[in-house]
Simulated assay, not measured.
Amino acid sequence: MLLLIPGPVTTRPEVRQAMTQDHAPWDNAFRPLYASVRERVLAIAGGVPGTHASLALQGCGHFATEAAVRTFVPPGGRILIPATGSYADRMARLAREAGRVVVPLTVAQTEPVSPAVVAAALAADPTISHVGLVYSETSSGVIHDAIAIGEAVRAAGRRLILDAVSAFGALPLDISAQPEMDVAVFTTNKCLEGLPGLSFAVARVDSLTGAVGNAGSWSFDLADIYAHALRSGWGSFRFTPPAQVLAAFQTALDFFDVEGGQAARLARYTANARTLYDGMLSLGLEPCLARDVQGPIVMNVHAPSDPAWSLQAFVDALKEAGFVISNFYNTEYPSFRVGCIGAVTPGDMQRFISAVDQVLVRLGIKNRSASRQAA
Rank of each mutant, 00 (worst) to 15 (best):
residue 16 R to C: 12
residue 109 Q to Y: 00
residue 28 N to T: 14
residue 87 Y to M: 06
residue 86 S to P: 05
residue 102 V to T: 07
residue 98 A to Q: 05
residue 87 Y to C: 08
residue 10 T to S: 11
residue 72 F to W: 04
residue 40 R to N: 09
residue 84 T to I: 01
residue 93 R to H: 13
residue 87 Y to A: 10
residue 20 T to Y: 12
residue 35 A to K: 09
residue 92 A to F: 10
residue 26 W to F: 10
residue 90 R to V: 13
residue 72 F to C: 10
residue 15 V to G: 10
residue 92 A to C: 03
residue 99 G to C: 06
residue 21 Q to N: 10
residue 65 T to G: 11
residue 107 V to L: 03
residue 27 D to Q: 11
residue 85 G to C: 09
residue 14 E to N: 01
residue 20 T to W: 10
residue 34 Y to G: 08
residue 53 A to T: 08
residue 109 Q to P: 02
residue 36 S to T: 15
residue 80 L to T: 07
residue 61 G to Q: 02
residue 39 E to L: 06
residue 30 F to S: 04
residue 115 P to N: 12
residue 62 H to W: 08
residue 36 S to F: 00
residue 23 H to N: 06
residue 94 L to N: 14
residue 51 T to G: 14
residue 108 A to Q: 08
residue 17 Q to E: 15
residue 15 V to N: 07
residue 12 R to A: 14
residue 58 Q to N: 14
residue 102 V to L: 14
residue 30 F to E: 01
residue 23 H to L: 13
residue 52 H to G: 08
residue 19 M to E: 12
residue 14 E to P: 04
residue 87 Y to D: 15
residue 64 A to E: 00
residue 55 L to S: 02
residue 79 I to L: 13
residue 70 R to C: 08
residue 20 T to D: 14
residue 111 E to V: 06
residue 38 R to M: 01
residue 101 V to S: 06
residue 96 R to Q: 15
residue 44 I to P: 00
residue 111 E to Q: 12
residue 46 G to I: 03
residue 23 H to W: 15
residue 83 A to W: 01
residue 51 T to P: 00
residue 107 V to K: 02
residue 70 R to H: 07
residue 19 M to I: 13
residue 99 G to V: 13
residue 61 G to T: 04
residue 106 T to K: 06
residue 42 L to I: 03
residue 35 A to I: 02
residue 51 T to N: 05
residue 96 R to I: 00
residue 30 F to D: 03
residue 26 W to M: 12
residue 52 H to P: 06
residue 11 T to H: 09
residue 46 G to V: 01
residue 20 T to N: 10
residue 81 I to T: 01
residue 98 A to H: 08
residue 57 L to Y: 03
residue 30 F to W: 11
residue 98 A to Y: 08
residue 109 Q to C: 02
residue 74 P to E: 13
residue 59 G to C: 07
residue 62 H to E: 14
residue 47 G to S: 00
residue 79 I to E: 04
residue 7 G to R: 07
residue 83 A to F: 03
residue 75 P to A: 05
residue 116 A to C: 02
residue 55 L to Y: 02
residue 86 S to V: 14
residue 75 P to T: 06
residue 106 T to I: 08
residue 67 A to W: 01
residue 48 V to Y: 03
residue 107 V to G: 02
residue 96 R to L: 10
residue 55 L to N: 09
residue 97 E to T: 15
residue 62 H to D: 13
residue 45 A to D: 05
residue 35 A to F: 10
residue 88 A to G: 13
residue 59 G to S: 12
residue 19 M to A: 15
residue 100 R to W: 04
residue 106 T to E: 12
residue 103 V to E: 13
residue 62 H to F: 10
residue 30 F to H: 10
residue 31 R to Y: 08
residue 45 A to F: 00
residue 53 A to H: 13
residue 7 G to W: 05
